[in-house]
Simulated assay, not measured.
Amino acid sequence: MKHKATAESALRKELGRIALREAERLAFPPTEWEANTLAELLALPRVTVTRPPEEHLLAAGMVPKDCHVNCSTQVANDPDRLSRHVWGWWIYSPIVVLHSVVEVRGQWLCLTPTMTPLPSRFQFIPDASIEWLKANDGVATHGFRGGVKLPDALRRYPEHHLRMRDELRALMASGMTAFDAWQIVDAKLGAERTLVQDQIRDLLIRK
């Protein structure tokens, strides 16, 4: 019983950490560039991408949450030189997430283990306008589009993400844990689906 309580406490702490991290990550100020770019992207052609089984990806050495490196590794290690690294946007309504996939003989594949239950297929927008440039340190690289450094995602409703972040901060400042604060915010704003809510629910399902 004690072990179960400890495990549940650890899970709640981890879920709270994820909720806070994602809320902060997606709460950047809205801009006209973001709105215009999202509208432009949603008008581009889409492809259907397939996720191979997670255990196959892990066995092949693919790393969770590192899609750009995974795809670069696949291209570099493909003896037949048939793999093509494609940058673009994973449609995860109501946001689009900067993502990398590979195209092999007309088949589109996501090589990044999700570690959470997600559909085996999803819609993806290839974006030939993305370029990767080295940072000032000469080591790290960042994605750019039209000279603008890309965020991790583009949002259809940026005001929702700002409101969620502010609500979480206020509740935690009152002494509430991140997990309990997220539950309250989720109930209050639950009609507006977000990446934060989906990630938390995915983890809960997996556990």
Rank of each mutant, 00 (worst) to 15 (best):
residue 3 H to K: 12
residue 3 H to G: 08
residue 3 H to P: 07
residue 4 K to F: 13
residue 5 A to P: 08
residue 5 A to Q: 14
residue 5 A to E: 14
residue 6 T to W: 12
residue 7 A to C: 11
residue 9 S to V: 12
residue 13 K to D: 05
residue 13 K to H: 06
residue 14 E to M: 05
residue 15 L to D: 02
residue 16 G to W: 02
residue 17 R to I: 11
residue 17 R to F: 12
residue 19 A to G: 12
residue 20 L to K: 13
residue 21 R to W: 08
residue 21 R to V: 07
residue 22 E to F: 08
residue 26 L to F: 05
residue 29 P to I: 01
residue 30 P to F: 00
residue 31 T to P: 00
residue 33 W to C: 01
residue 35 A to N: 05
residue 36 N to W: 03
residue 36 N to D: 04
residue 37 T to L: 02
residue 39 A to K: 06
residue 41 L to C: 01
residue 43 A to R: 06
residue 43 A to C: 03
residue 43 A to N: 04
residue 45 P to N: 06
residue 46 R to Q: 06
residue 51 R to K: 13
residue 62 M to G: 09
residue 64 P to C: 14
residue 65 K to Q: 15
residue 65 K to N: 15
residue 66 D to I: 09
residue 67 C to M: 10
residue 69 V to C: 11
residue 73 T to S: 10
residue 73 T to W: 10
residue 75 V to M: 11
residue 78 D to K: 12
residue 81 R to W: 12
residue 83 S to Y: 03
residue 84 R to F: 11
residue 84 R to H: 14
residue 85 H to N: 13
residue 87 W to K: 13
residue 87 W to R: 14
residue 88 G to R: 05
residue 91 I to L: 06
residue 95 I to G: 05
residue 97 V to N: 04
residue 100 S to M: 06
residue 100 S to L: 07
residue 101 V to W: 03
residue 102 V to A: 02
residue 103 E to D: 12
residue 104 V to F: 10
residue 105 R to E: 14
residue 106 G to V: 02
residue 108 W to Y: 11
residue 109 L to Q: 08
residue 109 L to C: 08
residue 110 C to T: 10
residue 111 L to A: 11
residue 112 T to D: 05
residue 115 M to T: 15
residue 116 T to G: 13
residue 119 P to G: 03
residue 120 S to Y: 13
residue 124 F to C: 06
residue 125 I to V: 10
residue 127 D to A: 08
residue 130 I to L: 09
residue 131 E to W: 00
residue 134 K to P: 01
residue 135 A to K: 03
residue 136 N to E: 09
residue 139 V to P: 00
residue 139 V to N: 00
residue 141 T to P: 02
residue 143 G to T: 08
residue 146 G to Y: 04
residue 148 V to P: 00
residue 150 L to F: 02
residue 150 L to I: 03
residue 155 R to H: 05
residue 157 Y to E: 07
residue 158 P to N: 04
residue 159 E to Y: 04
residue 160 H to V: 10
residue 161 H to C: 08
residue 161 H to V: 08
residue 161 H to W: 07
residue 162 L to S: 00
residue 163 R to S: 09
residue 163 R to H: 09
residue 164 M to R: 06
residue 170 A to Q: 07
residue 171 L to V: 06
residue 171 L to T: 01
residue 174 S to W: 04
residue 176 M to P: 01
residue 177 T to N: 02
residue 177 T to S: 05
residue 177 T to L: 00
residue 184 I to V: 05
residue 189 L to A: 00
residue 190 G to Y: 01
residue 192 E to P: 07
residue 192 E to C: 10
residue 193 R to C: 06
residue 195 L to P: 09
residue 199 Q to P: 08
residue 199 Q to W: 10
residue 203 L to V: 12
residue 204 L to M: 15
residue 206 R to H: 13
residue 207 K to H: 15
